[in-house]
Every structure is written in C-alpha cells, then in structure tokens.
C-alpha cells in the first residue's frame, strides 16, 4: 500500500510532465517544444527552489505532527537581515568574509527563532499552530522594524552587495543548494536515528513518550531546522530579487505546506517522505510553468492549483475513509 501511494505522486508528476510536453507551445522560429528546452527546465527548478527548500524542512515538521506557519515571515526576516548586513554594515573586511558573516548570521538568526518556537512548543506543551502563528506575526513585525518598513536595495556594481547578489542568484547555486539539501534531508530522514525518532514521534506521541524518546529535543531540532531553511531561502530570495524586502514571502508557508501534502505527507504526522515533497514541489512548478507558457490568466492558475491540492490529497487517502 505504501509503495502504491508513493507511486501515485510520482505518476501524477509524470502525467503532468507528459501533458506539459503535449500542450507546450512550440518555438515560433524553429518549432522545438519550448517546455523541453534546457533553459525552461532549469527555469522551473530555479523557480521552485525557494518554496522547495522551505518544503524540505516543513516535511519533517509535519512528520512530527507539527506545522510551521512562520517560514514566510522568517524568509522576509532573513532577506532583510542579510541585505542590511551587506549594505549598511561596513566591517572593513574582504568581500568573502563580510558576505559569509552576513549570510551565516542571517541564517543562524532564523535558526535561533526556530529554536525558540521549538522550545515554547516542547516546554509549554503548546500547539505548534498557535506558537508559529504568533511567530508569523511577530517576526514579520521584527523584519519591518529592523528595516524601518523599507526595502533594502542591493547594488548592481562590484561592491560587496553586487558580488553577493551575483553569487547567490546564479541558477547553478540556487538549484544546487535545493538538490543537495533534498539529498541531505532524505538521508536524515531515512538513515539516521533522528529521522526514525521523528517518524515515531509523529506516528504515536504517547508510545514515543512511553518508549522514552527525547521528545523535547526532537521538537526543538525540527523547528530549528525549519528556521535555518527559511533563513537560507530568505538569503536566496534577497539575492534573486536584488533587494531585502520585509514584506515579501507572504503565504509562502502555505505554498510549502501544499507541496508537502501533495507529496503524500500526512498532516496527522508519522507518514511522509522527502521524495514525495520534491515531487509535490515539482508538480506545482511544472503546472505553473505550463500555464505561463500558454499565457493563461494567473487567476485560473490559482484555481487549478486548488483542484490539484484537493485531488492529490484525496488520492493519498486511498479507499479506507468514511
């Protein structure tokens, strides 16, 4: 049964890709199928990378029967922080050192807030939905407060900010990070004690407690990971947009959650896979690309996504419901 379900999301992706090939417009000059061009395929990967990176960590959060609603705000926080550190802070260091500190600092800053989420959830036994909802509001405020409500623009020259933007907006860097992290998370989940504990905790909290699993530590680790990934996605977001905007990333958490559930991870916890999440992310990405290639209204794109989410989750349920 598990195998069949995994096949379903992959089959869904294959179907959508087949459809994209069939329905893709052709190049008006040489007749090639635009969807299949190397440029277009890499565009898709680049475009899904930010949401994809959020979704990787979100998979583990959901696996432990949690949810992280603040990753969109965290992305904005990281984008703002890294832009501020690079444009307004001048430590007089060489570019690689300055950029390295700014990037790592921003990511760790988000990791810190993720750890705070995890601690509040674990120690006060509060629902993740409520804790991360509060964080979503608070961190958005923090990002706006730090930047004084402004977008921090990144330069185009060969100064530190220009170098930073050029480096972190390159397709190979953006896609490479997503792919490497997907492999890392897959191994983390399937091959480590932490992964087995997380799955067990999500499957049955009571049993996990009785078995003496370090529940608090697992929860803190999971939300810290989510914060770190949101931070990294924020850094990439800042570089790609040439600006750190405290207002960006709205509803990104929902897109990440959508990718996770399309990939077959259960919101009840205990069941899910990184492969599924990557597939879910790509289903959304390919679909968006196809709609844009055909010049379909953006609003129709949103409606179609709604149908896909419902359809995918209905299929994951199998026939045992009611």
């Amino acid at each position: 049964m598990e195998h069949l379900k995994k096949l379903q999301s992959v089959a869904g992706l294959i179907l959508i890709i087949a459809m994209a090939i069939l329905l893709s417009p052709e190049d008006r000059r040489d007749g090639t199928i635009i969807f299949l061009t190397q440029e277009n395929i890499t565009d898709i990967f680049r475009q899904v990378s930010e949401i994809g990176i959020l979704a990787l960590a979100m998979t583990i959060v959901i696996l432990v029967a949690g949810i992280d609603l603040c990753v969109g705000s965290m992305l904005a926080l990281a984008a703002s922080t890294v832009a501020l550190l690079i444009t307004t802070w001048d430590p007089g260091m060489a570019p690689p050192v300055h950029i390295g500190i700014a990037v790592l600092g921003s990511i760790l800053f988000c990791g810190f807030w993720g750890a705070v989420n995890g601690l509040v959830i674990a120690k006060f036994h509060m629902q993740p939905f409520i804790v991360t909802l509060a964080a979503m509001i608070g961190l958005r405020g923090l990002a706006r407060w730090l930047t004084d409500n402004r977008n921090i623009d990144i330069g185009f020259g060969q100064d530190h900010s220009g170098i930073f933007a050029d480096l972190f907006s390159q397709k190979i860097v953006v896609i490479g990070l997503f792919v490497l992290l997907a492999i890392f998370f897959h191994i983390l989940l399937k091959r480590t004690v932490f992964g087995r504990y997380a799955t067990a905790l999500g499957g049955n909290t009571q049993a996990a407690r009785v078995a003496g699993l370090p529940i608090a530590r697992i929860q803190v680790a999971v939300y810290t990971l989510s914060g770190l990934m949101a931070g990294l996605a924020g850094v990439i977001h800042c570089a790609q947009n040439h600006q750190g905007s405290p207002n960006d990333g709205v509803a990104y958490e929902l897109e990440a959650i959508a990718a996770v559930v399309i990939g077959g991870t259960s919101l009840m916890g205990g069941k899910g896979s990184i492969v599924g999440t990557v597939v879910g992310t790509l289903i959304m990405g390919v679909l968006t690309n196809l709609f844009r290639l055909r010049g379909v209204d953006t609003n129709v794109e949103m409606m179609a996504k709604a149908v896909i989410i419902i359809a995918a989750v209905r299929l994951q349920q199998g026939r045992k419901t009611f």
Partner: peptide, 14 residues
C-alpha cells in the same frame, strides 16, 4: 517581484 521575474523568464523562452 519574484512572480514577475519568473513570468518574464518564462516569456523569454517563448
């Protein structure tokens, strides 16, 4: 911004 960048990117392919 991200959406507009992606849309133009896809448009260039056409």
């Amino acid at each position: 911004n991200s959406k507009q960048i992606s849309q133009i990117e896809t448009t260039i392919r056409k």
